[in-house]
Structure formats: C-alpha cells, structure tokens
Write a protein that binds this DNA or RNA. Structure first.
Length: 280
DNA sequence: CGATTATCCTGTGCGC
DNA sequence: TGCGCACAGGATAATC
C-alpha cells in the first residue's frame, strides 16, 4: 500500500535513474491502466525527454516538457520497476516506458487499481507545484511532508469526524494512508477516534510534529513493505520502516513504550491500531 | 457534514 | 490437499 514515504522513495529512484533520458516508446497493455482518457493520447510524450519527477501526496507527476505531465498513482498494488529491454516481463505488467538508452520503467499492478493519465490542462511546463499545474490534483490538501501546523489546525477546526478519518482524507492532508495515520497518532499521543475538532492547540502541534517525524523517518527507511510484499522500490527492493512500526498491525502485542496491549478499533470499513496507555 | 456502504480487483491465508 | 470465502484497502460516489 504505497503511501507518501513509498511514493517519495519511488520518485527519488526514478529521478536518479531516468531524468534526462528520452522516451522512445510507451506501450500500455493494461485495459484499465489508462481509464480517464483515450490511451492513444499518450503518444504525445514519445520522443520527449524526462525533465523531472514531482510528487504531491501519493501522486507522481512525470514532466516531459512542452506542457506534458503524466500522472501516476500506484493505489494498492502498483509498482514502478526498472528493467532492461529484453528482460522477461513479470505478471501484471500493464505499461512499459522504453527509453532510448535501452533501459525501461515498467508499471506492474496485480489489482489494477493504479492508473496513469495525462494531465488535462497543465499550466506551463517546469514551474510550480503539481497541485497548481494539474487540475486533477486541485482537490488535494497540502502535501503531508510540507504541511504547516497552521494549515493542519485550520483543516481540523470544527470537524467531528475521527482524527484518523481526517488524516487519511486526501483533501485534508495529501499522502497519508492507513499505516502512517496510525503511526502518526501514536507519535502524537492521540487516540485515532478523537474528534478532529476537539484537539486543543497544543495537541494539534503534537500532531503536526508527529506527522513530520514519522514521515521523514519512513522516507529515510525507504518506506514500509508488509507481509504481502506489495510495496517494492524501483530496484525491486523492500523498504525497512515496517521494522519501526509501533502500532500498525501489532494488536495484542505489548506497546514498545508502556507495555500495554495494542488494541484494534473498527469503525465502518476502517480500523485503527492504538495503545490505550500512550494515546488519549 | 458525517456515517455508511458499495465499487473497482487479485493474491493470500484462513477455516473446514 | 483443496475448496470457498473473507480480507486487504485508496479513491470516489451514492445514500441517508
């Protein structure tokens, strides 16, 4: 389940390996991979140079110059893997970016929730953050790694929904999913089912700080690869942050901080792991 | 607004 | 050993 730290790891890997290279051909074979528009439009970026790769929340934006931005979202099971032309394709390979160097970037996605699309009306090439250049991303809140405490305070004010529901709402903060919402709440010492608007200013400060600390540590560890092995970096390697999870997936195990059993609460289709000793 | 449910999809891991 | 099924969940839409 790629969230911000995993997507940022992929972004950095792709930047290092492919920026400056020219796309020779893009072959999309997945029927659902490009579903927002006519897939033949992707021919526009063939022959273009990859100028840069940006990220907002869990979205990747490939800048091909000439106002062409290709957006990618990995959703649940998407991977972007480096390969060499001629390498055998793994199952569920839905798109192949073939560069003139002979290297390839392959989009692999068993559950097919992931997608690729060309930004409909990017406002000029090169300049400005993705959220302002790509209309499809305009609904997203500030990127969770760059969010200011004041933005978080404003986004939570008056909201009665559980804190975790707000953290995973991409309109509030972009980039946080199930794993990191739990870890961030633990780091802040806040129950995930607290109504978001009920936090006092000091608690919002703790939440903002925990968001930065957790996400930065997760990026440094190159993301979390769970037991299902679904997240892999561009080289196919697993992340290491799962070794530092303090609550996610640990129900019934003793809290690393206070020793009480980690609990799992459910509401609707969502659930959260939390420590009744450390979070209030 | 918020709570809830459904949709998309496949690999895994469980119970029987 | 094998079958069937619940589960996993990110984004989005619909309904109440």
């Amino acid at each position: 389940m790629p969230e911000l730290p995993e997507v940022e790891t992929v972004r950095r890997d792709i930047s290092g390996l492919f920026v400056g290279d020219t796309l020779r051909r893009l072959v999309v074979t997945g029927r659902r991979t490009v579903r927002r528009h006519d897939p033949s439009l992707l021919a526009r970026i063939e022959g273009q140079e990859l100028v840069g790769v940006a990220r907002h929340g869990k979205f990747l934006c490939f800048d091909w110059g000439a106002a062409n931005v290709l957006v990618a979202h990995l959703r649940m099971s998407g991977q972007l893997l480096a390969a060499t032309a001629g390498d055998a394709a793994v199952a569920h390979t839905h798109a192949v970016f073939a560069f003139s160097t002979g290297r390839e970037l392959r989009f692999v996605d068993p559950r097919t929730f992931g997608e690729l699309f060309l930004a409909s009306a990017p406002q000029g090439a090169g300049a400005g953050p993705p959220r302002e250049r790509v209309s499809e991303l305009a609904h997203l809140g500030p990127d969770a790694l760059a969010a200011e405490p004041a933005q978080l305070r404003a986004a939570l004010a008056g909201r009665r929904a559980p804190l975790k529901s707000l953290l995973v709402d991409q309109r509030v903060l972009a980039g946080i999913g199930n794993i990191y919402a739990d870890e961030i709440c633990f780091g802040a010492g806040l129950r995930p089912d607290r109504p978001g608007g009920a936090l006092d200013p000091a608690e919002v400060g703790l939440l903002a700080r925990s968001t930065q600390v957790v996400l930065e540590a997760a990026v440094a560890a190159r993301g979390s690869t769970l037991g299902d092995q679904q997240y892999r970096d561009v080289a196919g390697e697993a992340g290491r942050f799962q070794l530092q999870h303090r609550v996610y997936g640990r129900s019934g195990l003793p809290c690393v901080s206070c020793g009480r059993r980690i609990e799992r609460v459910r509401w609707g289709a969502k659930s959260a792991f939390w420590c009744p000793g450390c979070q209030r």
